[in-house]
Simulated scan of single mutants.
Amino acid sequence: MQYARAIREFVVEEFLPDVPPAELEYEYDLLEHGVIDSLGLLKVIVWIEDRYGIDTEKVDLRPESFRSVAAIDAFITHASQQRTKSA
């Protein structure tokens, strides 16, 4: 997981300030447990756009892509590969 560390740090900083990043499990369901709500999802998307230069209007945005640190990592990896292929 190439982006997991940065994702964990962002999620903890924005949504779980009392949790050390290392304690956030990669598969912990952020949506089901209410860590990220609809407004939080927008924050995550903007962060991905800003940090990784991914144009989220050109990729398929599904809630499953933001369910966990692992899912967000996979989304960024896939979107980055798509950007590289189309460049």
Results as ranks from 00 to 15, higher is better:
residue 63 P to V: 04
residue 46 V to D: 09
residue 41 L to V: 03
residue 73 D to A: 09
residue 72 I to C: 09
residue 11 V to G: 03
residue 53 G to T: 01
residue 51 R to H: 05
residue 23 E to V: 00
residue 44 V to T: 09
residue 38 S to K: 11
residue 49 E to C: 02
residue 32 E to C: 00
residue 18 D to W: 00
residue 5 R to N: 06
residue 51 R to A: 09
residue 79 A to P: 06
residue 73 D to H: 08
residue 62 R to M: 11
residue 71 A to Q: 12
residue 58 K to Q: 14
residue 61 L to V: 08
residue 31 L to W: 07
residue 54 I to K: 11
residue 8 R to D: 01
residue 26 Y to H: 13
residue 74 A to P: 02
residue 82 Q to M: 14
residue 79 A to K: 07
residue 65 S to F: 07
residue 29 D to G: 05
residue 22 A to E: 15
residue 81 Q to W: 04
residue 47 W to G: 04
residue 28 Y to L: 06
residue 47 W to I: 01
residue 12 V to F: 06
residue 12 V to C: 15
residue 35 V to A: 10
residue 4 A to I: 01
residue 78 H to L: 08
residue 74 A to Y: 06
residue 41 L to Y: 12
residue 44 V to L: 15
residue 24 L to N: 04
residue 38 S to M: 06
residue 85 K to R: 15
residue 49 E to S: 14
residue 30 L to K: 10
residue 4 A to W: 00
residue 43 K to Q: 15
residue 43 K to S: 15
residue 43 K to D: 12
residue 9 E to D: 13
residue 59 V to P: 07
residue 17 P to S: 03
residue 44 V to Y: 13
residue 4 A to N: 03
residue 76 I to S: 04
residue 66 F to S: 08
residue 49 E to H: 12
residue 57 E to T: 11
residue 58 K to C: 05
residue 86 S to M: 11
residue 27 E to M: 03
residue 39 L to G: 07
residue 49 E to F: 06
residue 55 D to R: 14
residue 57 E to C: 03
residue 72 I to R: 08
residue 53 G to K: 10
residue 74 A to G: 11
residue 3 Y to S: 01
residue 1 M to N: 02
residue 28 Y to F: 15
residue 85 K to M: 11
residue 56 T to S: 10
residue 54 I to F: 07
residue 84 T to V: 11
residue 63 P to S: 06
residue 48 I to K: 09
residue 53 G to V: 03
residue 56 T to H: 06
residue 6 A to M: 02
residue 27 E to G: 12
residue 77 T to I: 02
residue 62 R to C: 02
residue 29 D to L: 06
residue 78 H to I: 00
residue 70 A to R: 15
residue 40 G to C: 09
residue 64 E to N: 11
residue 45 I to D: 02
residue 65 S to R: 13
residue 18 D to L: 14
residue 67 R to S: 15
residue 58 K to H: 10
residue 15 F to G: 03
residue 1 M to F: 02
residue 65 S to M: 04
residue 72 I to G: 05
residue 13 E to I: 00
residue 49 E to N: 12
residue 66 F to M: 11
residue 79 A to V: 02
residue 37 D to K: 12
residue 16 L to V: 01
residue 69 V to E: 04
residue 73 D to Q: 08
residue 25 E to V: 02
residue 32 E to D: 13
residue 17 P to T: 01
residue 83 R to P: 00
residue 56 T to A: 04
residue 35 V to K: 13
residue 54 I to A: 05
residue 50 D to P: 00
residue 10 F to C: 01
residue 33 H to C: 01
residue 48 I to H: 09
residue 72 I to M: 15
residue 31 L to K: 10
residue 57 E to A: 13
residue 59 V to S: 05
residue 48 I to S: 06
residue 23 E to N: 13
residue 84 T to C: 03
residue 3 Y to L: 00
residue 61 L to M: 12
residue 66 F to R: 10
residue 55 D to G: 03
residue 14 E to N: 07
residue 41 L to C: 06
residue 44 V to Q: 10
residue 64 E to V: 13
residue 42 L to W: 00
residue 26 Y to P: 00
residue 68 S to Q: 07
residue 17 P to N: 05
residue 58 K to M: 10
residue 87 A to Y: 04
residue 12 V to H: 05
residue 70 A to G: 10
residue 87 A to V: 10
residue 67 R to M: 09
residue 34 G to D: 09
residue 59 V to M: 08
residue 62 R to D: 09
residue 54 I to Y: 08
